[in-house]
Amino acid sequence: MADARLKVFRGTIEGGALKDYQVPVFEGMVVLDAIHHIQAHDAPDLACRWNCKAGKCGSCSAEVNGKPSLMCMTRMDSLPAGRPIVVEPMRRFPLIRDLVTDVSWNYEINKRIKPFKPKPREADGTYRMQQMDVERIQEFHKCIECFLCQDTCHVLRDHRRYEFAGPRFMIRLATLAMHPLDTENRLREIKDQFGVGYCNITKCCTEVCPEDIHITDNAIIPLKERVAGEFYDPLAWLWRLVRGKKADQRSEVH
């Protein structure tokens, strides 16, 4: 098979440029294979993160031809032939070197989320949940923390509204909110501290998610609806006024 041409970003925060490389192509090759080839033959110090190379750990996030993607899951034959393949680091995060960025912000946000607080076990020492109770959240638990959604979300990428926790943590907040065993109420934080209102549901997070999690439809919009119900719905507000205290307790228990 013919060689492929790549333009890979090389540089640090002080500056850098796309550099040309040529790699042989083999069947089923992915972009990460090309990067490995470059490391082994042309540039041993080309910085790049990767671990599992099977789309399960979410380490090799980058922007391939401008699209936030996992390099290990981007087949070379899925990219337009004959044109150089451009590989750049995630643009939303501060650059460390070459394709490696500083994603520590994500870990800080995660720490601010109030931890899971389960209700007590049943008398026989088990927790009983039906498959229908857990299925919705199991979708969110597929998240591999590649942070491609955080990269592409324009609230963070373009507007730098870091008051917004970003799609990844909306997912996590939704997980906790919908968890059948959790007893904590985080709605006010979701509204204020994590800024769900910053999301304008333009769905780019969903488009780039390598795990096909419907981030916007299944996590963020339901959170927006819950927040709307709690803080903005005039009818619900009236309803609560009429039912008084009882309604409040119900929303606590869920």
Partner: peptide, 15 residues
């Protein structure tokens, strides 16, 4: 499970 893990369930609700 107490820490939030969600295993697949049996019809009786256990793991």
């Amino acid at each position: 499970e107490e820490w939030g893990a969600l295993f697949d369930r049996l019809p009786d609700g256990r793991i």
